[in-house]
Design a protein around this nucleic acid. Structure first.
Length: 753
DNA sequence: GTACCTACTTAGCATTTCCTCC
DNA sequence: GGAGGAAATGCTAAGTAGGTAC
C-alpha cells in the first residue's frame, strides 16, 4: 500500500473507531454520556415537578397568544377521546407518545474540517446533468440519453403490452448467484416503469386490486400444565387475561420488563383485560410468576428449531402460499409486491428510549378496524367470514391498500407497496433529483443564509443559523412534538438551550459549539464543532435570558423554515439537505478513496469507508452486535493461522529456490513456481481477511444500511461499480438491487450526482 | 399562525435464512 | 449434517411534511 494511500485511509478513519485514540475518545464520550444520562435522569425525576411547571409555563405562554379559550385542555381532551375512539371504530385521533431513553455512547468525533462537503466542488456538467437540468426527473429524459437502448426497450415493452392486457409477474428471487442464467432471464422480464410516463394529475394509480391484509392468528390458550403463579400459588387465568400475560412472559428476558414505566403501564392495561375476580386479586406485578409460561415459549421456540427438514419445508410452503395469495396486488396492469401485508399482531408496545407508553397493550386489530382502499372496478377483498371492513374506499390520490388506527398513539398505520414497486421507486428517484437540483443552487443558498446571519430581525438570524446547522451537520428538521407524550427527542428547530454549549476557545480552536441531545429513536447526537464567528455570536444572542429548557430557536419552527426553503428552490425542504449532503459526500469520498490499481477487496473497503463517512455524518448508529467481540476474535484467529501458513509457505519457497539453485533441473524449477504461486495465493487470502477485519472493526457501532437505503443516490454507487468493474452484487444485495433496479438500469459509469 | 390530521419516509432492533466450517 | 455466525429480511416505531380548518 502506498504512503499516499495510507494517508488517505487514515483521513477517513478519523471519523470511525478502532484505533487507540478513538477508544480513548469513546471512553471520554461514554463518560460524558453517563453524565448526560445522570443529568437527564435528574431531569426526568424532575419531570413531574419542574418540567411540568415548564410545560405549564409554555402552555401559558402559548395561551397568551391564543384567543383566550383553553386550547390546551381542549387538545388533551380531544386526544384522550381519540384514543378511546380508536377502540370503538370511530374516526381517528392525533399523535402522542413520549418519555426518554438514553442510547449508547455517541460516536461523533470532532470533524477535522467541514465534513468534506463544504463548499461544493464544481463538477463539469455531464450530458446527463445538462439534460436533467432542462428536464428534471422525467423518465422520458432517459430515453433521449440512451436512444438506441431506449428504443429497443420501448419496443420490447410495447410488444409485451400488446400481448398481455395483463399482469407482468414480478419474479420471486433466487438468493444465490449460482442461478445466473435464471436471474438474467428474470431481469429481462422485469417491468421498467422508469421508461414510462408518470401521472401528472396527482393520482397514484388507475386500477388497484388486492386481497386485503392477513390477520394475526387467533390466541391459542396455554396448555393446562403451564401455570401462572400469583404470590407463589398457581392461578388459572381467563383467556383474555392469559393472552396479555403471555405477551409479558415472552418478553421476560428483555430489559424492557425491568423498567418501571413498562411494568406500570403493563399492569394497568393488563388489569383492564381481567375478570373482576382476577382484578381484585392481581394487584402487584412483583407477585406474578411468569416463569413457567416463559419456559414454555422457549421450549416451543427450541422445538421449532429442532423440526425435521420436512416439517420446516411444509411451513415454508404454507408461507409461500400466503405470500402468493396476499403478498401481491395488481396496480395498473402490473403485479406488484406488497411491503407489509400482515396486520401487526397484538402485544406490548415497545417504544424507543424512555417512552412514557412502553408496556401498554397494543390491541388486536380486527376486520372492523380496517379501511380498505382499492379501485371501484376491482374485486373488493372479502373480510373473514362473519366480519365486515370498517370501510371500503376508492381513493387513487393515495398509495395505501389498507389502514387502521392503532390504540397507543392513535396514529394511522398503513399497508403499502414494497420498495421495488413503481410507486415507491418513482418517489425515490424524484427525491434524488430534487437533491441534485439543490446541488445547482446550494452556493446561492449558502451565501444567502450567511447574509441572513447579519439580519436585523431575530427570526431571520435564527432561521439562518438553523439552516447552517442543517446544512453543515445534516441535522433533521426537528418538528414540534406533543410534550410528555413521546420520548424527549429533538431535531434542529426544536433544540433547547440545554442541548448546546459554547466555548469561545477550546483546544486551539475558536468558537466551538458542543451539541449533546437525543435525536430520532433516542439516539444520542454528540458533536463538537468550530463555527464561524458570526454564528457563535448569534448563538450567544439566542441564549440570552433563557433557561436551559427554553427553545434555542424560539422564533422558528419547521413550517417557517420549510416555507422559506420553498421560496429558495421549488420542492426544497430541510430534509433535502440531508439527502444532498449524504449523496455528495459519498461521491466525493469515492473519488478520493478509490484507487484504480487496488484489488477488488481494497476497492470494496474504500466503498464501505465512503459509505461509513456518510453514516457518521448522518449519525446512523447501532448497538454493537452481541457477538461482536467473539466474531472479531474468530477472524483474528483466522488471520493468525493464515499468517503462519504464509510463513511456512515462504520458507518452502525459499528452500525450493535453493534446491533449484543447486540442481538447476526442471523439476525443482517447477516446484519453485508452485511454491511461488502458493505464497501469492496465501498473501491474497491474508489481505482479504485483514480487509474484512478492518471493515468490521470500523463498523462496530455504525449502521451503513440506513444511508445506503435512504440517502445515497444509487446511481452514484452504480456508476462507481461500473467504472471500477466491481460487480453490483458486491455493493447491493438482492433486495437492494430490486429497490434500485431503476438506477442499475439507467446509470452509466460517468454519472455525476 | 396554530392545531390537527394524514400520508409517507426513515430508522434500529428482532427474527429468519443462508453459508461456512468442522 | 449440524452448529454457529453473518447476512438478509421483517417489523414497526419515529420521524418529516403537506393540507385543511379555524
Amino acid at each position: 500500500m502506498s504512503g499516499d494511500r495510507e494517508h488517505r485511509e487514515s483521513q477517513v478513519n478519523c471519523g470511525s473507531k478502532g484505533n487507540d485514540s478513538h477508544k480513548h475518545k469513546d471512553k471520554h464520550r461514554e463518560h460524558k454520556h453517563k453524565d448526560h444520562k445522570k443529568d437527564r435522569g435528574h431531569e426526568r425525576s424532575k419531570h413531574n415537578s419542574e418540567h411540568k411547571e415548564h410545560s405549564e409555563k409554555k402552555h401559558k405562554d402559548k395561551l397568551k397568544h391564543s384567543d383566550g379559550s383553553d386550547k390546551h385542555k381542549d387538545k388533551e381532551k380531544r386526544r384522550e377521546d381519540k384514543v378511546k375512539l380508536s377502540h370503538t371504530d370511530k374516526p381517528k385521533k392525533e399523535k402522542e407518545n413520549g418519555y426518554v431513553r438514553h442510547s449508547s455512547p455517541g460516536i461523533k468525533s470532532e470533524p477535522e474540517e467541514d465534513n468534506g462537503f463544504h463548499p461544493v466542488s464544481k463538477h463539469k456538467a455531464s450530458k446527463r446533468e445538462l439534460d436533467d437540468e432542462e428536464f428534471d426527473y422525467k423518465p422520458k429524459k432517459v430515453k433521449t440519453e440512451h436512444d438506441k437502448k431506449e428504443k429497443k426497450r420501448k419496443h420490447e415493452y410495447e410488444e409485451e403490452d400488446e400481448e398481455e392486457e395483463d399482469i407482468k409477474p414480478k419474479k420471486t428471487k433466487d438468493r444465490s448467484a449460482k442461478d445466473g442464467k435464471k436471474n438474467k432471464k428474470e431481469e429481462e422480464e422485469k417491468w421498467k416503469w422508469w421508461e414510462e410516463e408518470r401521472y401528472t394529475d396527482g393520482s397514484k394509480w388507475r386500477f388497484l386490486e388486492h386481497k386485503g391484509p392477513v390477520f394475526a392468528p387467533p390466541y391459542e390458550p396455554m396448555p393446562d400444565k403451564v401455570k401462572f403463579f400469583y404470590d407463589g400459588k398457581p392461578m388459572k387465568l381467563s383467556a383474555p387475561a392469559e393472552e396479555v400475560a403471555t405477551f409479558f412472559a415472552k418478553m421476560l428476558d428483555h430489559e424492557y420488563t425491568t423498567k418501571d414505566i413498562f411494568r406500570k403501564n403493563f399492569l394497568k392495561d393488563w388489569r383492564k383485560e381481567m375478570t373482576p375476580e382476577e382484578k381484585s386479586k392481581i394487584t402487584d406485578l412483583n407477585k406474578c410468576g411468569f416463569s413457567e409460561m416463559s419456559s414454555y415459549f422457549k421450549a416451543q421456540s427450541e422445538a421449532r428449531k429442532q423440526m425435521t427438514k420436512e416439517e420446516k419445508q411444509k411451513i415454508k410452503e404454507e408461507n409461500e402460499r400466503i405470500l402468493q395469495e396476499y403478498g401481491f396486488c395488481i396496480m395498473d396492469k402490473h403485479k406488484e409486491r406488497i411491503g407489509n401485508f400482515r396486520i401487526e399482531p397484538p402485544g406490548l408496545f415497545r417504544g424507543r428510549g424512555d417512552h412514557p407508553k412502553m408496556g401498554m397493550l397494543k390491541r388486536r386489530i380486527r376486520p372492523q378496524d380496517i379501511i380498505i382502499n382499492c379501485s371501484k372496478d376491482s374485486k373488493i377483498p372479502k373480510p373473514p367470514t362473519g366480519t365486515k371492513w370498517k370501510e371500503v374506499r376508492h381513493d387513487n390520490k393515495v398509495t395505501w391498500l389498507a389502514s387502521w388506527t392503532e390504540n397507543i398513539q392513535g396514529s394511522i398505520k398503513y399497508i403499502m407497496l414494497n420498495p421495488s414497486s413503481r410507486i415507491k421507486g418513482e418517489k425515490d428517484w424524484q427525491k434524488y433529483e430534487t437533491a441534485r437540483r439543490l446541488k445547482k443552487c446550494v452556493d446561492r443558498i449558502r451565501n444567502q443564509y450567511r447574509e441572513d446571519w447579519k439580519s436585523k430581525e431575530m427570526r431571520i438570524r435564527q432561521r439562518a443559523v438553523a439552516l447552517y446547522f442543517i446544512d453543515k451537520l445534516a441535522l433533521r428538521a426537528g418538528n414540534e412534538k406533543e410534550e410528555g407524550e413521546t420520548a424527549d427527542t429533538v431535531g434542529c428547530c426544536s433544540l433547547r438551550v440545554e442541548h448546546i454549549k459554547l466555548y469561545p476557545k477550546m483546544d486551539e480552536q475558536e468558537f466551538v459549539v458542543e451539541f449533546d441531545f437525543l435525536g430520532k429513536d433516542s439516539i444520542r447526537y454528540y458533536n463538537k464543532i468550530p463555527v464561524e464567528k458570526r454564528v457563535f455570536k448569534n448563538l450567544q444572542l439566542f441564549l440570552e435570558n433563557k433557561q436551559p429548557e427554553d427553545d434555542l430557536f424560539d422564533r422558528l419552527n419547521t413550517s417557517i423554515l420549510n416555507k422559506h426553503l420553498q421560496e429558495l428552490m421549488d420542492g426544497l425542504t430541510a430534509k433535502v439537505f440531508r439527502t444532498y449532503n449524504a449523496s455528495i459526500t459519498l461521491q466525493q469520498q469515492l473519488k478520493q478513496l478509490t484507487c484504480g490499481d487496488d484489488s477488488d477487496p481494497a476497492k470494496i473497503l474504500s466503498y464501505n469507508r465512503a459509505n461509513r463517512a456518510v453514516a457518521i455524518l448522518c449519525n446512523h448508529q447501532r448497538a454493537p452486535p452481541k457477538t461482536f467481540e467473539k466474531s472479531m476474535q474468530n477472524l483474528q484467529t483466522k488471520i493468525d493461522d493464515k499468517q503462519s501458513q504464509l510463513s511456512t509457505a515462504r520458507k518452502q519457497l525459499k528452500s525450493a529456490k535453493s534446491d533449484y539453485k543447486a540442481s538447476h533441473d526442471e523439476k525443482s524449477q517447477k516446484t519453485v513456481e508452485l511454491k511461488r504461486k502458493a505464497v501469492q495465493r496465501i498473501e491474497e487470502q491474508l489481505m482479504k481477511l485483514q480487509m474484512q477485519a478492518t471493515d468490521r472493526e470500523e463498523n462496530k457501532q455504525i449502521a451503513l444500511g440506513t444511508s445506503k437505503l435512504n440517502y445515497l443516490d444509487p446511481r452514484i454507487s452504480v456508476a462507481w461499480s461500473k467504472k471500477y468493474g466491481i460487480p453490483i452484487e458486491k455493493i447491493y444485495n438482492k433486495t437492494q438491487r430490486e429497490k434500485f433496479a431503476w438506477a442499475i438500469d439507467m446509470a452509466e459509469k460517468d454519472f455525476e450526482f
